[in-house]
Amino acid sequence: MATLNLESNLADPDAFYEALIEMHRDLTPEQSAAANAALILLLANQVGDLAVLRAAMARARATVTTD
């Protein structure tokens, strides 16, 4: 069973960040949210393992404060 990798795994984090910002350039907030949702689904399909995806969702949720 695969586990969530929390170590840096990006070959070029700066290039990834630049590409991510470029993906959102000139989009409305609604379009940006839709692009994020599409990207999440594409990456989830790439990962494939539901346990890893659940771990990632829990980790991401834990970073959000809900006053």
Score class of each variant (00 low, 15 high):
A2Y: 11
M23V: 11
I40K: 10
D14I: 15
S32F: 00
L10V: 01
F16Q: 09
P29D: 01
L50K: 15
N5D: 07
A19Y: 04
H24E: 08
A51G: 05
L20A: 13
A33D: 03
S8W: 12
V52H: 03
S32N: 03
E22N: 13
F16R: 14
L50G: 03
A58C: 11
V52Y: 03
G48T: 06
H24T: 10
Q46F: 06
H24A: 15
Q31A: 06
L27A: 02
E22F: 08
A51T: 08
P29I: 02
A11P: 05
L6D: 03
E7W: 06
A19G: 07
A56T: 04
S32Q: 02
L41P: 00
L27G: 04
G48N: 05
N45E: 14
D12C: 02
A2L: 15
A56W: 05
A60H: 10
P13Q: 11
T63A: 15
F16H: 14
R61W: 02
A15T: 06
T66M: 04
D67A: 13
L39N: 05
A44H: 07
R54I: 12
D14F: 11
M23E: 07
L27Q: 07
A35M: 08
N9I: 10
N36V: 06
L20G: 11
L50Y: 07
L4T: 00
A38Q: 14
N5R: 13
T66H: 08
N5H: 05
N45G: 09
I21P: 02
A44I: 06
A35T: 01
L39G: 01
H24I: 10
A60K: 07
L50N: 08
F16N: 08
P13F: 03
T63G: 13
L20K: 10
E22I: 12
V64M: 14
V52A: 03
A15E: 13
S32V: 01
A37P: 00
L53A: 00
L10H: 12
A2H: 08
D14Q: 15
N5F: 12
G48Q: 06
M57A: 13
V47C: 04
L50Q: 11
A33R: 15
M1R: 08
L6Y: 11
R61K: 14
T3V: 13
A15K: 09
N5P: 01
D49R: 00
P29E: 02
R61G: 04
P13D: 03
A19L: 14
A15D: 11
I21Q: 12
A33T: 06
A33G: 07
A37E: 15
E22D: 11
S8Y: 15
T3F: 14
I21L: 15
L39Y: 09
A55K: 00
P29M: 00
L39P: 01
A56F: 04
L41F: 06
A19V: 07
Q31T: 00
D12H: 03
L20Q: 10
I21V: 12
A62C: 01
A56Y: 02
N45H: 07
E18M: 08
N36G: 06
Q46M: 10
R25M: 07
L42H: 08
R25H: 03
A44T: 11
E22P: 02
S32H: 00
A2I: 15
A33M: 14
D49N: 09
M23L: 14
A2N: 10
A2W: 11
L20V: 12
A34M: 12
A11W: 10
T66G: 01
